[in-house]
Write a protein that binds this DNA or RNA. Structure first.
Lengths: 180, 180
DNA sequence: GGTCCCCTTTACCGATCGGTACAGTCTTTA
DNA sequence: TAAAGACTGTACCGATCGGTAAAGGGGACC
């Protein structure tokens, strides 16, 4: 089960997606991670704040590595954009259609983690702008904003309507909209 | 200040937008509404659950009256769609760019208020589908889904980036996309 | 004036909150 | 084998949580 800090971070991320950051109590965290209070405060001396920061770091690093960096690589822009949709689609589908940064942006956590949230979306939009521009799109920056926003909206709507396929099909339409 | 139940509901809605439903404590609610605990439980015998349901009812009724119904009226479809963007844009801009239903869809409140959340978005999409279809759009239902999702995404992104104008401009682009 | 009813105030409840303290148990290293 | 450091279990802390009980205030109506 949970063996070290890295494992704990993954379990915490899953928890925060399910319960939300503020509503995830330490008792619930203990139960879901299998870690006692002493262990939790050993790995995260700052308590829940440290846990959230570690989770956001992990997720942010994943996106930087698996999404943002590939968007800037060489090769056909359309293929890179398609890879982004594939990667992010699979990511959120296997994570209850919750984007932790998006959820925190909507809630009060925005005050505490504003910089991390802003950085996540800024980096995503900036990275997506690159291949869009290379593929000859006018206003690539605005288009990238609409695509990232469209993905976030699809998450909200799919969760609201309990319709996982809606998310998949929305992403398909977004993709078709930017690459023929 | 808060004189009756209707006033209280407006104050509660403002509170839930700021703090989120689960994180808004009764102490905070007392302070923001100016109502004592006895008064709150007099107006809302079921506690926070009743408060949330009353708030969702009020918001839902507002959208039904000010957004969904006008979308189904007579007249030029494009004008009705434009009116929807104007009304919802002004609504969310004056409410901290938070959609209570969207926020609850992302969070754990979805379990408790799933029917209300689902109804809100279903009604919105269904109503928007009408003028889109009348204006000759192919796949009007899917287009309506994308527009409603786009608005939700714009809310998330604008809050994440602390950029109110981003919300306005995103809505402008969405509008231009569906009505020339 | 008396009586009802809507609303409010206040005190209180057990449960749970996030966090701390600290002794104890492993595993690693010398 | 001994010491050290990484990790864990448990008891505990004051504060706050959502909710309840009951007495009192203040008009409206008879």
């Amino acid at each position: 089960m949970v063996r070290d800090r890295a494992d704990a971070i993954l379990a915490l991320a899953e928890m925060f997606r399910t319960y939300g950051f503020e509503s995830a109590s330490l008792a619930t965290i203990e139960k879901h991670t299998g870690l006692g209070r002493g262990s939790l405060y050993h790995f995260f001396p700052g308590g829940k704040n440290d846990m959230a920061r570690a989770v956001l770091d992990e997720v942010g690093a994943w996106f930087a590595r698996e999404v943002y960096a590939p968007l800037r690589e060489d090769g056909p822009p359309a293929a890179r954009i398609e890879a982004m949709f594939t990667a992010t689609g699979a990511y959120f589908r296997s994570r209850h259609l919750v984007c932790l940064f998006g959820a925190m942006a909507i809630g009060r956590e925005r005050e505490r983690f504003g910089d991390e949230i802003r950085g996540y979306f800024r980096d995503w939009i900036d990275a997506l702008t690159v291949p869009l521009e290379q593929s000859g799109a006018r206003e690539a920056g605005l288009l990238a904003t609409d695509v990232v926003g469209g993905i976030q909206g699809a998450l909200v709507l799919a969760r609201a309507l309990h319709d996982d396929d809606l998310f998949t099909r929305s992403l398909d339409r977004l993709q078709a909209q930017v690459i023929g």
